[in-house]
Computed example of a mutant assay.
Amino acid sequence: MTFEALKPQVETIVSNPNNTVDTALLKICELLEANITYYNWVGFYFKNGDKNELKLGPYVGEPTDHTIIPFGKGICGQVAVSNENFVVPDVAAQDNYIACSITVKAEIVIPIFVNGENMGQIDIDSNTADPFTTEDERFLEFVCEKVSGML
């Protein structure tokens, strides 16, 4: 399914008044993982209160031990500090990478801004080497923008 075809489905999920935030986030994870073949783990991390750390939110994929990530650590922690997209074509080439699974080859992390503040991010792992394109970035920025409206 194309990114353009997925956009209205994302909008439907976030605008459904019967969905709690966590339910909507989980449904977005399920939608992306089911429809984009190289999205093998899809999840959200959010700033953990006033602490300089991220806390795992809804996700789909293999279970992870990384439920808390300090700012600056790993790809997610770096995005929490830089406030910028981070596309990793080859995780083995990253010094500051937290391995969630030996099958992961690439990762993309896009921050979620609420009123200009980085409140969290969507994190996607792929078992395919170098699968992410500019189209993935633009689509995931769209997803994060829609999610920010719920927070």
Rank of each mutant, 00 (worst) to 15 (best):
E30L: 06
Q94K: 11
I69A: 13
N19L: 01
Q121S: 03
K73S: 11
D130S: 04
S126A: 02
F3G: 07
I69F: 12
F139I: 08
G49W: 08
A34V: 07
I36W: 03
G43L: 01
L140C: 01
K105H: 00
N118T: 05
P63Q: 09
I28T: 08
D136Y: 01
Y38C: 00
G72I: 11
K27D: 11
L25C: 04
V147Y: 13
L56Y: 10
K51Q: 13
E145Q: 05
D123M: 08
V14R: 15
V21D: 05
V104G: 05
T67W: 03
E145I: 03
V143M: 12
V14E: 09
M150P: 07
I110Q: 00
N118R: 15
Q94F: 06
M1S: 11
T134F: 02
T23Y: 07
E53L: 09
I112P: 01
N96I: 11
T64A: 03
I28Y: 01
L6C: 04
T20F: 02
S101Q: 05
D22M: 10
K55W: 14
E53G: 14
K47S: 06
I98L: 12
F71R: 09
Y39P: 07
G57E: 14
G61T: 04
D125T: 02
V91R: 01
G74M: 14
P111E: 07
Y59K: 06
C144Q: 10
I98M: 03
G74F: 12
V87A: 05
V114G: 00
A34D: 12
E11L: 06
E84R: 14
V88D: 13
M119F: 03
N19E: 03
F113K: 11
K7L: 06
S82M: 06
H66F: 13
S101T: 04
V88Q: 15
E135H: 02
M1L: 12
